[in-house]
Amino acid sequence: MTSSCLYFTSIVSVWILTTSIASAFQSNHYNTKEPSLARSTSTTSTKKNLKTFERYLEIECWRHTELRELEPVLKSVAGSCKEINRIVQRAQTDDLFGAAMGADGLPLDDNIQGEVQQQLDVLCNTHMLRAFCGGGSSCIHSVASEEEDEPRCCSDVMTDSAFAVGDYIAVFDPIDGSKNIDASLPVGSIFGIYKKQPGSDVGEQTFLQDGGALVAAGYCLFSASTVLVLTLGSGVDGFTLDPDSGKFLHTLKDIRIPRKGSIFSFNEANYRGFSEPIKRYLKLLKEGTSKTGVSMTARYIGALVADVHNILINGGIYGYPGTTSNPKGKLRLLYECAPMGMIMEQAGGAASTGHKRILDVKPTEIHERTPVFLGSVENVFELDQFFQYDE
């Protein structure tokens, strides 16, 4: 071959190679689809065929006809959990931190706990009030919130007398562990539903029922995923919010807590104020001499819903005992301990004050506090023995 032919052939080869590279670059640079997605089609996850929360309620309320009135309310509560989830996710970007302001531009009065009302608390409380009182049914007569001084009739919440005819009352803590939000840690909402006492006016006395009278209880956990856990008095089920469909899907069916577990969740910063039975019990766990025969490990998140959910799934014990400065502890019986106690017992666990079953404790006022221990039967029983024999 002559030198001119070789030269021409080389030129053509370089031109073809350059054109191919440019074409490939343009295809990748301007194509709106990610090339990596196209290559990984075969490994794309497939959605499970899971029942929706709405379908679950339809079936359960068909099985338990006495609960049919509550179906639209519980659907509304699930919707409220979605809204609170959005609020929590936007707290950092939408400047939702800080004290809540009134129409006069001044901070709102402190709540019943003596705490400055925060924007997040007020927003979440409003969503829960509307969910229970205006949730497509008028079956909820009155509500009591951990954020408000006194119970409120739904006719007051909705400014319509038509909402004062229901046979049920609801209690809730709209946002538990809100101080975790600025560090992007888990928070939650807790609720319980009671039957209104027949033949009596609705006031604070109506709400002073023991946890054994609860008709339904649940919580929403806002964490790596958003989970709604519910009991209607015949077991416990959990639902995970699907970010694609925006629906709660039945991912945790008939939750059963292990009879004994390896996690203990106490705020040990309060250790010096704990009673001797609690100190001895914690010492036992740390020394590895628990009668359960399980090697224990400490986990404490600082939000009741998150800590209890961890115990519910994995087993163990959650405790918030009284201290020398706060003998009755920190947690409210009506809004937190009783609903969580019902959930724990319905999942096969136990709920105790250290001296008696949580669900047997009748509050004397709506914001009453109590020591509480929730978890696996064997773990809670072992702790109760320390109170029985050590005091």
Rank of each mutant, 00 (worst) to 15 (best):
T2M: 12
S4Y: 13
L6D: 04
S10N: 08
I11L: 03
I16G: 09
L17Y: 07
A22V: 14
Q26M: 14
Q26H: 15
S27L: 15
K33N: 14
E34H: 13
S36M: 14
A38D: 11
A38S: 11
T44D: 06
L50R: 12
E54P: 00
L67I: 09
L67D: 05
R68Q: 12
E71S: 12
E71L: 13
S76Y: 03
C81H: 03
E83T: 15
E83W: 08
I87S: 05
V88W: 03
T93Y: 05
L96A: 12
M101K: 14
A103R: 04
N111R: 07
N111S: 13
V122E: 04
C124E: 11
N125T: 05
R130G: 10
A131E: 01
F132H: 11
I140P: 06
I140N: 09
H141W: 01
E148F: 04
P151I: 02
V157T: 12
D167P: 00
A170R: 08
V171R: 01
V171W: 00
D173C: 00
D173W: 01
S184A: 12
P186W: 02
V187R: 05
G192N: 08
I193L: 01
Q197S: 09
P198Y: 00
Q205V: 10
Q205N: 15
T206A: 10
G211Q: 07
G212Q: 05
Y219P: 03
L221Q: 11
T226H: 07
D237A: 14
D237G: 13
S245G: 10
F248E: 06
T251M: 07
D254L: 13
R256W: 15
I257H: 08
P258F: 08
E268Q: 04
G273I: 07
G273P: 11
Y281V: 06
K283I: 00
L285H: 02
K286A: 12
E287Q: 11
V294L: 10
M296G: 05
G302S: 01
A303H: 05
A303I: 00
D307C: 07
H309C: 02
S325T: 15
G329N: 04
Y335W: 07
C337P: 00
C337K: 00
G341Q: 02
M344A: 02
E345D: 07
G349H: 11
H367N: 10
F373V: 10
D384Q: 14
Q385N: 14
F386G: 03
Q388A: 14
Q388M: 12
